[in-house]
Simulated assay, not measured.
Amino acid sequence: MRTVVITGGTGGIGRELARRLLASGDRVVAVGSGAARGAALRADAARLAAEDRLDLHQVDLGSVAATRGFAEELRRRYDVVDALVLGAFRYHPGRTETGEGFERTFALYVLNRFLLPELLREPLARATRPVILNLCGTGGPPAGRIHWDDLQLRRRYGGLRATMQGARANDLLGVAFAARYAHTTIRYVLYNPLFVDTGLAEPFRQPVRTLVRVMARLFAARVEQAVPPLLDLLAEPPTRPLTALRRGSPVDLARPGFDPHSAQRLYGVLGELTAAHLPG
Rank of each mutant, 00 (worst) to 15 (best):
L190V: 00
L253V: 06
A263Q: 05
R213A: 14
P237A: 09
R180I: 01
N192Y: 00
T243Y: 00
L17Q: 01
A49F: 02
F102C: 00
M1F: 08
R265E: 14
A65E: 15
Y78K: 07
T128A: 15
G38W: 05
R161E: 15
Q165F: 08
T274D: 12
H147V: 08
R129F: 03
Q225C: 03
P193K: 12
L278C: 10
A30N: 09
A201F: 06
Y191Q: 02
A107V: 08
A235R: 15
F219T: 13
V59R: 05
G94F: 09
L124P: 00
L190E: 00
R76F: 04
T128Q: 13
V110T: 14
D26C: 10
L22Q: 11
D150V: 09
A226S: 14
N112E: 09
T96I: 04
S249Y: 00
P250T: 04
A39R: 14
L173K: 05
R161G: 12
R42Y: 07
R76Y: 02
V251M: 05
Q206C: 01
P207F: 10
R180S: 12
R205I: 03
D44C: 12
F70A: 10
V208A: 09
F114N: 09
A276W: 06
L135F: 02
R155K: 13
L54E: 08
D60K: 11
A216T: 12
L116T: 04
R37H: 11
R154M: 03
H147E: 14
L270V: 09
V214E: 01
Q225P: 04
A83K: 02
A143V: 14
M164R: 14
G38F: 05
L234T: 00
V85T: 02
G159A: 10
P203F: 09
P238D: 00
V196D: 01
V110Y: 02
F106M: 06
V64T: 14
L41W: 08
L48D: 11
L21Q: 11
A50K: 04
E97G: 01
D55H: 15
R76P: 04
P203K: 11
L74N: 06
A35D: 14
D82S: 05
E100I: 05
F204W: 07
G174H: 03
Q225L: 12
F70I: 04
E51G: 05
T96Q: 13
R154C: 06
D197C: 04
P142Y: 02
P250S: 09
E73G: 15
N170K: 07
R42Q: 15
R47K: 12
V29H: 07
D60T: 10
P207W: 05
D232E: 14
F195G: 02
Q58A: 13
H277R: 10
P93L: 10
L231G: 15
V131D: 00
D60Y: 10
R246L: 08
A216S: 15
R145K: 12
D171V: 03
L160A: 13
P241V: 03
E236G: 08
A276T: 11
G159T: 07
E202L: 13
V196A: 05
A125L: 06
R19E: 11
L234V: 01
R121F: 11
L22K: 11
E272V: 01
L116P: 03
G32S: 06
Y78L: 13
L211W: 13
R27V: 07
A45W: 08
S24H: 07
P142H: 08
A50L: 06
Y157H: 07
R27S: 11
G62Y: 04
R68K: 13
E72Y: 01
L173E: 08
